[in-house]
Amino acid sequence: MAGPEDEKLAQTAVGALTGQLALAPKPGLPDPRDLGARVTHRDHRALRWSAKALAPGLAAMAAAARRTGEPTAGLRAELGAIGRSTEHTVGLTGGGHRGALWALGFLVAAAALTPGAKAPEVAATARRLAAFTDRGAPRRPSRGSTISVRYGAAGARGEARAGFPHVRRAVTALTAARAAGADETEAGLDALLTVMSTLQDTELLHTAGPHGLRHVQAGARGVLEAGGTATPAGRAALLALDADLHARAWSPRGSAGLLAGALFLDSLPIGRPAAPRWPA
Rank of each mutant, 00 (worst) to 15 (best):
A233D: 14
L239H: 06
T231I: 04
G158H: 07
G152L: 03
Q200R: 09
T202A: 01
T175I: 02
Y151I: 03
H211C: 11
A208K: 05
A156S: 12
A220D: 14
L174F: 07
A180Y: 04
A153L: 02
D183I: 09
T198W: 11
L192E: 01
G222D: 13
L239Q: 09
E203W: 14
A233M: 10
E186M: 10
L224M: 07
T172E: 15
A237E: 13
E184K: 04
L199I: 00
A170H: 15
Q200Y: 12
T175A: 15
R235A: 13
D190Q: 02
L189D: 01
L174N: 01
A173C: 06
R235Y: 14
A237R: 14
Q200F: 14
A154S: 08
G222F: 12
F164A: 07
R178H: 12
V171T: 13
T198S: 14
R214S: 13
G234I: 02
H166V: 12
A208H: 08
A230L: 11
R214G: 14
G181W: 09
G219K: 09
V167N: 06
T194N: 08
A156K: 11
V171G: 12
A170F: 13
V167C: 01
H211R: 14
A226K: 07
R178Q: 11
V216R: 00
L213R: 02
A226C: 09
E159D: 11
L192F: 14
P210N: 09
A173F: 11
L238H: 02
T202C: 00
A230W: 03
L241K: 03
